[in-house]
Each structure stands twice: as structure tokens, then as C-alpha cells.
């Protein structure tokens, strides 16, 4: 990219200041010109969101109540929670500080579309329907409601490893979780 000449910038800025300040001095309507927007349209953000606490979806459990069913840290493996939203909790799985993948539990009470893929699967793990999603995820459906997923972020973390880690969740505990 061509370097920006700083003295040119200052000159251009001076001009712009003059234009803007000059523009401000004119009462609206006299010039017929469009007012200069405070923020360019291309970076316009949403309006200030309402100052409300998260509206809990009636049928979904709180993310925090899912945390207790995750595998804990053990040996060289460390579990670090990263997201906790209504009906969803996610943790990183690390080995000796290197990220292997992501662990998650997701309440499908408000997301029935995600249940469909389990109905098409004839595989099971520990008695729960099992599916592979893409190349990187393995998922279980627990209690016809909770989706437990393990995702590989590293090739060293294989599909077999994902099944091992799925079994480390407290699946029977999760199955009995109610609102």
C-alpha cells in the first residue's frame, strides 16, 4: 500500500475541518446540502441495545447448570469454560497448554431442528444416539434433549479421542436434569 504522506493528511484534515465547521455555521436548509453524518454508513452499528438482562427462554436450562456435567481437568488435560449462555455451555480442552478442541452441552428444547440428525443415525455410544457432524465433531443426544458435542481443533485430537471424551461427561446426571 502506498504510504500516506502525513503532511498531506494534515492539509486534508485542515480542509475537512474548515468544510465541516463551515457547514455547521450554516443553518440547516440554507445550503440544501446533506448534513455530514457523524459516522460513515458502512460502519454503522446497531442502535444501542435495550438495557435488559437476558430474557430466559422458558424451556431452556441456564448454561451454568450444565457446567457440572462436563469432564474435569485431569493430568495434562485442562478444561477451561469459555461460553455460558441460556441452554448452552462450552469449554476448551487443552493438553499441556495446547488447545485440542471444544466441549459443549446444548439444550435442544428450543432448537428441535438439531435433533433430526440423531433420528437418522443408527449408531450409539453408552446407549445414546451418536452422530458425526462434518469432519470435526462427534455428538450424542442425551435424554432426547441435550446435545453433547466434542470438536477437534487439532488433527492430533482424533474422532476416537472425541468418543473417549464424550464418555467422560456425566451423561446419566445430565439425562436426569430438568428445568
Amino acid at each position: 500500500m502506498k504510504p500516506l504522506n502525513f503532511s498531506r493528511f494534515l492539509i486534508a484534515l485542515s480542509l475537512s475541518l474548515t468544510l465541516v465547521l463551515g457547514g455547521c455555521a450554516q443553518p440547516p436548509g440554507e445550503t440544501g446540502a446533506e448534513p455530514i453524518p457523524a459516522v460513515p454508513a458502512e460502519v454503522s452499528a446497531p442502535e444501542a441495545p435495550a438495557e435488559v438482562e437476558a430474557i430466559a427462554q422458558e424451556e431452556s436450562v441456564k448454561g451454568g447448570s450444565l457446567n457440572t456435567f462436563f469432564p474435569g481437568s485431569e493430568g495434562d488435560f485442562e478444561r477451561v469454560f469459555v461460553q455460558e449462555k441460556t441452554g448452552f455451555s462450552q469449554a476448551k480442552l487443552k493438553e499441556n497448554g495446547e488447545e485440542l478442541g471444544l466441549l459443549s452441552i446444548n439444550d435442544l428444547a428450543n432448537n428441535p431442528k438439531a435433533i433430526e440428525k440423531f433420528k437418522r443415525s443408527d449408531k450409539e455410544l453408552m446407549g445414546y444416539p451418536l452422530v458425526t457432524v462434518g469432519k470435526t465433531q462427534t455428538a450424542l443426544l442425551v435424554g432426547d434433549r441435550y446435545q453433547v458435542k466434542v470438536k477437534s481443533n487439532s488433527e492430533a485430537f482424533t474422532p476416537e479421542d472425541r468418543e473417549v471424551w464424550l464418555q467422560k461427561f456425566n451423561l446419566t446426571g445430565l439425562e436426569s436434569l430438568e428445568n
Partner: peptide, 26 residues
């Protein structure tokens, strides 16, 4: 930050020396 001022400044490629006197405004 990407105010009208900055955007206008970036869009302008004007660089005549005669405008150096405007620098006192910055």
C-alpha cells in the same frame, strides 16, 4: 473514530503548500 472528518481527510488527496496555514487548526 472513523468520523466524517477522518473519512473526508482520507478521501482528499489535496496537498498544495498554500494550505499549510490551516495546520494551526489541528
Amino acid at each position: 473514530a472513523a468520523s466524517a472528518l477522518g473519512t473526508a481527510a482520507m478521501a482528499n488527496k489535496i496537498g498544495q503548500d498554500t494550505f499549510l496555514s490551516f495546520l494551526s487548526n489541528v
